[in-house]
Design a protein around this nucleic acid. Structure first.
Lengths: 111, 111
DNA sequence: CAGAATCCTTATGGATACTG
DNA sequence: CAGTATCCATAAGGATTCTG
């Protein structure tokens, strides 16, 4: 898994670490970034992230759901299961922070 | 090393990833957090980060310097070498972003 | 479709002893 | 003091195949 461990005492020295832990992982920010446009299904995410394997996508989504940033929506049409992922209310509060990260990244690494 | 690879094309889809990459690493945010109070020597950092090994501290500092966030200051008193690390001007622009991360971490994980 | 199961490679971090 | 040099453990990520 890529999930976040419990609340480590060491984090007290560094509040930023708490947040970083939640979004660290090779594909987590890209998943979160993609979902800014609204929910997306497993397959859509897979297509949006060329190169990711189903196992790794599952790992990352599980971690994000388990950390409470995303919620999983399951719909059954007939006997076909379709699942989608979207921000939870809690996760949505992180978006401005992701914006701050993104803006810094753009202005300091672009060109 | 813990240094950041070149500018990956995939990052274009996710500007936040650019920033995250620079501060990902078990001790990087803690190092950066500590340096907010001003420069610190190798030994001081080591003491401030209980549990870190000299090799890992070196790895992380090298990465941060190589990514341009920190600068290394070397002073020779007699034949004794003392080195200290501090934010570069470039690195200092990241502080508000670290604050955003820290504030989110405090308000959403504390209690 | 949406994963689960397996197996495998490598990156990251760590312990310890040593050095200019 | 400020690191190097080694060797080691584990976690993170990946490729592939299979299934309800």
């Amino acid at each position: 898994m890529v999930s976040t461990p419990g609340f480590d005492a060491k984090m007290i020295d560094c509040p930023a670490l708490v947040t970083i832990q939640l979004v660290s992982g090779k594909w987590k920010t890209r998943i979160l970034w993609h979902l800014r446009h609204g929910e997306a299904g497993f397959g859509e995410l897979k297509r949006a992230l060329p190169g990711i394997s189903p196992k790794v996508l599952t790992d990352h989504l599980d971690a994000l759901v388990s950390d409470g940033l995303l919620k999983r929506l399951e719909r059954k049409e007939k006997n076909v299961v379709h699942s989608a992922y979207d921000y939870s209310d809690y996760g949505r509060t992180l978006i401005p922070v992701l914006d701050a990260l993104g803006n810094w990244g753009l202005s300091h690494r672009a060109q």
